[in-house]
């Protein structure tokens, strides 16, 4: 069962804070502990910053996933209609962004979360879907 989606538009740097805020509230609601809340917030930061820096605008959507008697989790979808990524394998490599001080980058998001999927098309945009499961 999925709850109705929540969504935060990313247009200015300040929106990143709002996106983190909502993500943390939802994470708390689902029952994530302090460490995982912080990890989810950091992952949202990375996703939102990518949108802000490279695509100018886009959005982050949130879905609470509840599988009855099974597990719960938080799904984040970051979507933009920006320039896209021409070489995904390059940006998914460790050492690509952190060395330049740009932050944890997409490998960082992948580490902070449990599941990670990326679809991107040059000049069309990028869509990243990532899930953190409650353990």
């Amino acid at each position: 069962m999925m709850n109705p989606q929540s969504c935060v538009k990313i247009q200015k740097e300040w929106d990143i804070v709002g996106a983190r805020q909502l993500g943390r509230e939802l994470a708390k609601e689902i029952g994530f502990g302090t460490v995982d809340q912080a990890r989810i917030a950091t992952a949202i930061s990375e996703l939102a910053r990518n949108i802000y820096l490279y695509a100018n605008h886009g959005e982050i959507r949130y879905e609470i996933i509840q599988v009855p008697e099974h597990k719960a989790g938080l799904c984040l979808i970051a979507e933009d209609e920006g320039p896209g990524i021409s070489d995904i394998s390059q940006v998914m490599k460790d050492g690509y962004t952190t060395s330049g001080g740009l932050g944890a980058g997409l490998p960082g998001v992948k580490r902070l979360m449990d599941e990670f999927e990326i679809h991107t098309e040059v000049e069309r945009g990028t869509r990243i879907r990532t899930i953190k499961w409650l353990r």
Binding site: V35, T98, G103
Partner: peptide, 20 residues
Amino acid sequence: DFLLEAMISYGLAHQEIQVL
């Protein structure tokens, strides 16, 4: 809690260095 938050990125950097 504030300190914990500030350490998340260090944790990531640590994992990355491990892989490298």
